[in-house]
Write a protein that binds this DNA or RNA. Structure first.
Lengths: 218, 218
DNA sequence: GTACACATATACTGGCAGGTAGATTCCGAA
DNA sequence: TTCGGAATCTACCTGCCAGTATATGTGTAC
C-alpha cells in the first residue's frame, strides 16, 4: 500500500515535471519567435521528443499558451496580494509592493511579453479568466493608493490614472528589460520604486538618498 | 501636356487613396483579431474588392504590417522632433512634448498596439528600421531630460531609466485606452503629463492646479 | 516468460491561407 | 468605334502545421 502510494505520487511528480519542461521550452520559443511562428514540432524537437508527447500532456497549443500567460499575471498578482493585507503604513506597503512588482515583472518577463503579444490567440474563456486577474490587480493597487491618499501621504490628482501609469511604467519593463543589462534586478527594483514614489508625490523617508544626484547647482 | 500631367497626378492620388484605405482596413482587422488571424481575403471583403487587388498595391502581407507599424512609431517620433529644437525652457518643452506624445499615442493607438504585438511577424529589415526609429525617440527624450537636469529644474536619479519609465507610462496607454473612456483625450494628455512632471520631480508652474485634489486633511 | 497497460513514436490527414497565372473588364485615346 | 493597356477578378496551387489514428516499445505483475 505504501509502495503503491509512493509510486502514484512519483508518477504525478514525473508528469508535473514533464509539463513544466514543456512549458519552459514553449515559453522560450514563443518569446523568441512568436506563437504562430512556433511549431509544436519545434517545441518537441528541443525536448528531444515528438509532437504526440506534447499532446499527451497538453490538449492543444492554445492551452499551452494559456498556461504561460496565466503564470505571468499570477506572479504580479501574488505581489500585491502579499503586501496589501499587511499592517504597515501605506508608504512601506508601496515600497514593498513596488520592489516586489518590479522583480516579478522581470522574473516573468517572457510570460508577460507573450501575454501582451498573443492575447488574441487565447481561447475566449482564457481571455476572460486572465483578464479578471488583471482587473483584480488594478483594483487592489487602486486600494493601496487609496489608503495613502486617505492618510494624506500620497498626493494624487487622479487615482485611477495613477494606477494605470504605475502599472504601465513597470509592465513596460517586460518590453525593454534584458538580463545582461546595465542594472541588476535589485537596483532596478529600487530605482523604479523611487519613480513610483515620485508619481504619487510621496516623500519616502526610507528611500536611500533619492534625487541626491540632481541638485548640482543652486 | 497640362492635361496629361493632371491626369498622371490624379492617378497617383487615386493610388495613394487606395493604399490608404487598404491600410486603414487592415489596421482595424489586425488590431481586433491579430495579424495571423486576419486573412487578406477578409481585408479585401471589407473593401468590397478581391485579394489580388491588395497584391497590386502591397507586395506582401508583411509589407502591409510594416507600413502600419512604421506609421505608429512615426507619430510619436514626430512629437519629440517638433518640440526638441524649440527655444523655450525644458519645463515648457516637457509639457508640450508630454501632451503631444499622449495625443500621438492615443491617436495612433491601433498602429502602436499592432507594432508591439506583431513585431515578430515583421521582416528583419523592417524590425531594424523601425527599431532605429524607436531608439532615436528614446535618445531624443533623453536629451530633453538632460537639458532639464543641466538647468537644475528636473531632479532625476537615473536619466536613462526615467526615459524608459516615461516612455512606458505613456506607451502603455495604447493597451488600456478606449475612445469612449472616462477621460477625453485632452484631459488625459494634461493629467498624464502632470505625472511625467512628477517623475522628473519638476514643480511645473504652468500646470493647472495640480495635486489640489489630494490634501483633503492636514 | 507471458500478458497487460501505459508511454511514446511513426505516419498520416485535412483545412487553411498566402501568393500567382491567366482571363476579363474598363477607360482613355485616336 | 475600335484599339491598347492598365486595373481588377476568377480560379488555382502549394506548403504548412495542428491535430490524430495506429503502431511500437517498455516495464510490471503474476
Amino acid at each position: 500500500m505504501r509502495a503503491t502510494k509512493v509510486s502514484t505520487s512519483l508518477k504525478a511528480e514525473v508528469a508535473a515535471l514533464k509539463r513544466r519542461r514543456i512549458l519552459e521550452v514553449a515559453t522560450d520559443l514563443f518569446y523568441d519567435s512568436g506563437y504562430e511562428n512556433t511549431t509544436l514540432e519545434e517545441v518537441a524537437d528541443r525536448l528531444k521528443v515528438t509532437k504526440p508527447f506534447i499532446y499527451s500532456h497538453y490538449s492543444s497549443k492554445a492551452r499551452l499558451l494559456a498556461d504561460i500567460c496565466e503564470l505571468g499575471i499570477a506572479c504580479s498578482l501574488a505581489e500585491i496580494n502579499k503586501v496589501l493585507p499587511s499592517s504597515v503604513g501605506p508608504e512601506q506597503k508601496l515600497r514593498l509592493f513596488g520592489e516586489g512588482f518590479v522583480l516579478a515583472v522581470i522574473g516573468s518577463q517572457k510570460q508577460l511579453a507573450i501575454y501582451n503579444r498573443e492575447e488574441k490567440n487565447l481561447e475566449p474563456e482564457d481571455v476572460q479568466r486572465i483578464g479578471r486577474m488583471r482587473r483584480e490587480f488594478d483594483r487592489k493597487l487602486n486600494v493601496l493608493l487609496d489608503e495613502g491618499v486617505a492618510r494624506g501621504v500620497f498626493r494624487i490628482e487622479d487615482r485611477e490614472l495613477a494606477t494605470l501609469a504605475i502599472g504601465g511604467m513597470v509592465s513596460w519593463a517586460s518590453v525593454w528589460y534584458r538580463p545582461r543589462g546595465r542594472l541588476a534586478p535589485d537596483t532596478l527594483a529600487t530605482r523604479i520604486t523611487n519613480l513610483i514614489f515620485n508619481v504619487v508625490r510621496c516623500d519616502d523617508a526610507r528611500a536611500p538618498d533619492r534625487a541626491r544626484t540632481a541638485p548640482k547647482q543652486r
